[in-house]
Simulated assay, not measured.
Amino acid sequence: MLQTLQRSKTKSGAAYVDSGSGDEVLVLIHGVGMRIEAWGPQIEQLSKRNRVIALDLPGHGLSAPLEGRPDLSNFVTWLASVIDELELGAVNIAGHSMGALITTGMAATAPERLRRIALLNGVYKRTIAARQAVEARAGEIFTGAFDREAPLGRWFAPDEANTDAYRLVRALLQEVNAEGYAAAYRAFATGDTLYCDCWPFVTCPALFLTGDGDPNSTPEMAKDMAEAAQNGRTAVIRGHRHMVNLTAPEEVTAALDNWLTWAA
């Protein structure tokens, strides 16, 4: 049984954890199939010097689902509305995977709400083959054919199967709501081109971090986004894959801690 962090809820049904205090407000957005607990190491450490707001994606954890058939833009609108509900003002946002795509959408559509952004294991202009593969998975998931073990093979190296990080992610996948997962995965699969041309216009400090072994959110993608942004930097964590914030928590947390000091 998973240990669940105590959450609050907005009037619109978004579940969140509000921890720590400080001049910088950091909003954490997880990836498809996860929930707030996937940010455990970062919440614990970064809340010592900052106010950290971690959110459950719609249809994940305790957050209400989005209505209809949402695309990535609906998730971006949802995040902006939560920031407004919580009266956070301009914030720092760190998003992992699907959370990175949502963060990109915020940079493209609401730059005035941002102080800094960090994309962890973000996707950028997938190849045709990669897009076909992820869209095929999205189609299968939407029909109810949801293999809750399959992502583990992409997200972890074989020798990580006995780690706490692997066990946590496996447990989160086992408990995620199937309809919430399917809706978010469809937006993730089809959303990588929606805001991808925004980077030349993004002026806030932007960190692009991934693992050197992530086959789908590659170091090349991170470097390309950083080079396209006006104030972008890349961090590549060696020896790690997609769940790098859990498999290399000290390195990732240190990178985020440093990022929060960049002049905004």
Results as ranks from 00 to 15, higher is better:
Asp164Glu: 14
Leu120Glu: 06
Thr127Gly: 10
Ala110Trp: 06
Arg148Ile: 15
Asn92Asp: 13
Val123Leu: 13
Ala133Lys: 11
Arg126Leu: 10
Asn92Ser: 12
Asn121Glu: 13
Leu86Asp: 08
Gly122Pro: 08
Ile117Trp: 02
Thr109Val: 12
Phe146Thr: 13
Leu152Gln: 04
Asp147Cys: 10
Pro158Gly: 07
Gly122Gln: 02
Gly144Met: 08
Glu160Ser: 02
Arg126Ser: 01
Arg115His: 09
Val134Ala: 10
Gly122Glu: 04
Glu160Pro: 00
Glu135Trp: 04
Asp159Arg: 06
Ala136Ile: 06
Leu152Glu: 05
Ala130Ile: 04
Asp164Lys: 15
Gly89Glu: 07
Arg131Ile: 05
Arg113Thr: 08
Ile128Met: 06
Ala133Arg: 12
Ala129Gln: 11
Leu86Val: 13
Val134Gln: 09
Pro151Tyr: 03
Glu149Ser: 15
Thr103His: 03
Ala94Glu: 04
Leu120Lys: 00
Ala157Gly: 03
Ile102Trp: 02
Val123Asp: 01
Ile93Gln: 03
Arg148Pro: 03
His96Lys: 03
Pro158Glu: 12
Lys125Ala: 06
Ile117Ser: 02
Val123Asn: 04
Asp159Lys: 09
Glu87Ala: 15
Ile102Cys: 00
Glu149Phe: 10
Pro158Ile: 12
Leu120Val: 13
Thr104Trp: 00
Val123Lys: 03
Ile141Val: 15
Arg137Ser: 09
Thr104Asp: 00
Leu86His: 09
Phe156Asp: 01
Ala100Met: 06
Glu149Asp: 15
Pro111Thr: 08
Arg116Val: 05
Phe146Ile: 15
Arg137Cys: 04
Phe146Leu: 15
Val134His: 02
Glu112Gln: 15
Ala118Asp: 01
Ala130Trp: 00
Gly105Met: 09
Arg115Ala: 11
Ile102Ser: 01
Gly95Arg: 07
Thr143Met: 14
Thr127Glu: 11
Arg131Gly: 14
Ile102Thr: 11
Ile93Tyr: 06
Leu119Asn: 05
Asp84Thr: 13
Ser97Cys: 09
Gly144Lys: 08
Leu152Pro: 03
Asp164Cys: 10
Ala150Arg: 13
Arg113Cys: 04
Ala118Lys: 03
Glu160Trp: 07
Gln132Cys: 10
Ile141Phe: 14
Leu88Ile: 06
Thr109Arg: 08
Gly144Pro: 03
Pro111Trp: 07
Phe156Gln: 02
Ala136Ser: 13
His96Val: 09
Glu149Tyr: 08
Ile128Trp: 04
Glu112Ala: 11
Arg115Ile: 15
Gly95Phe: 02
Ala130Leu: 05
Met106Pro: 00
Thr163Gln: 06
Tyr124Pro: 00
Ile141Pro: 00
Gly89Asn: 09
Gly105Glu: 07
Ala157Ile: 08
Leu88Glu: 04
Glu135Leu: 09
Phe146Gln: 11
Leu88Ala: 12
Arg113Ala: 14
Gly153Ile: 14
Ala130Met: 10
Ile117Val: 14
Glu87Gln: 14
Ala130Asn: 05
Ala145Arg: 14
Ala110Val: 10
Ala110Ser: 14
Gly153His: 11
Ala129Gly: 08
Glu140His: 10
Arg113Glu: 05
Ala100Phe: 01
Ser97Glu: 06
Asp84Lys: 08
Pro151Trp: 04
Ala94Ile: 12
Ala145Val: 13
Ile128Val: 15
Gly139Thr: 13
Leu152Lys: 07
Ala130Asp: 09
Thr109Met: 13
Asp147Glu: 05
Gly122Ser: 11
Met106Glu: 04
Ala157Gln: 08
Ala145Phe: 10
